[in-house]
Simulated assay, not measured.
Amino acid sequence: MWRNVRRPWTAGRLYEETLEAAMASRPVDAEARLSSPPRASILLDAEVQPMGPLAPAEDIRTDPATWDPRLERAYYDGDLRAGEAVLELYSRGVDVSRIQRAFSVGAFGLSRLRRMVPTRWSITAVDDIISARLRERIKTYDWIPEHRVYSLEAMGNRWVVLMSPGVWTYESIEAWYPGTTWNPTEDVAFVGDWEGPLGRVGYAGMGGCYYAARLAVTEALERERRQARVLVLREIHRDQLMPLGVWLVRESVRAALRGRPARFDTLEEALEEAGRHLDLPLRFWLRVSETLGGGRQETLSRYL
């Protein structure tokens, strides 16, 4: 059992085996001895994938594994701050999910400050660190030359990403249909957050989904060396039987942005196209949007 997440190495071999699995260059086989029978339950969480029956581990054994040399270098550098390690590993092509896993077990940071953190914290921290750095680069680029609409439908979700010429702003809005996991009511529930050119001051109220989508958006703009105003819209329908974690958000928005967008000269045309990919009337989205509402009432009045 873990006794101190601020000093995880005091758990001895239990921590060493966990670290071995997190740092391995490929998946490893593991065997665990449990201190009690597993509880017959499923853990559902908006940030991470569903987890099956749970039980405390008394001992863990993993097959010998070769560490990823890029992760290993960051681990043994006790003077490298965690944020710097994340950015360096990302620039070296390490997959985001692997960085998040190693971050969770306290593999990065100044030696005296390393600690284990919950998986949900590590996921959001890594998404935030990387996308914040990409955002600062993006703000130095020229604007995209037209309005764009990207769309995707997958796993009970509908996605629309609207990009417009302008100084960087970003907003993400989700609409949870009645009967979905986080909405037991009879009405559609909206949740969203946004940021302007200076970024955010506090943590986004909608949680890790905000930062996961922001990472996908900033990656796409960085590849193009362009700047834009961005609005991400997501409808969650009853077809999504359970939450699958923020990786679904990141990978879905990435997939949408790899597609060919519809391009328009005006925002009005782009909004009409966006509405064709959504079930909810556009007027509902515009009423809750902070970035499309402020300063654009006259332009958008016919949609309200």
Rank of each mutant, 00 (worst) to 15 (best):
V28C: 09
T169G: 11
E268Y: 11
G179D: 09
W176H: 07
I99F: 04
L292H: 04
R39P: 10
P37F: 07
S252Q: 03
R7G: 06
L304C: 14
V246N: 03
R260F: 10
V28E: 06
L221D: 00
Q100M: 07
L257H: 05
E222L: 01
E16R: 14
Y170A: 02
G166P: 06
R92W: 10
V191Q: 12
A270L: 06
R229C: 09
E88S: 15
L89V: 06
A11D: 09
E251Q: 15
A189H: 12
E171T: 00
V117M: 13
G275Q: 09
V126D: 09
Y210S: 02
S289H: 00
D279Q: 13
P178L: 06
L198C: 08
R61M: 12
Y150H: 11
E251T: 13
V201R: 15
A228E: 04
Y211A: 11
P50L: 01
G52L: 12
L267A: 09
V249F: 08
Q49M: 15
H277Y: 10
S164Y: 06
A228I: 00
T299A: 13
L19H: 08
A46Q: 13
P27S: 06
R61Y: 11
P184H: 02
G196V: 03
T299D: 15
M163N: 08
F108R: 05
A270F: 06
E17Q: 12
D142C: 09
T291Q: 10
W194S: 14
R283L: 08
D265T: 12
D68Q: 04
R223P: 10
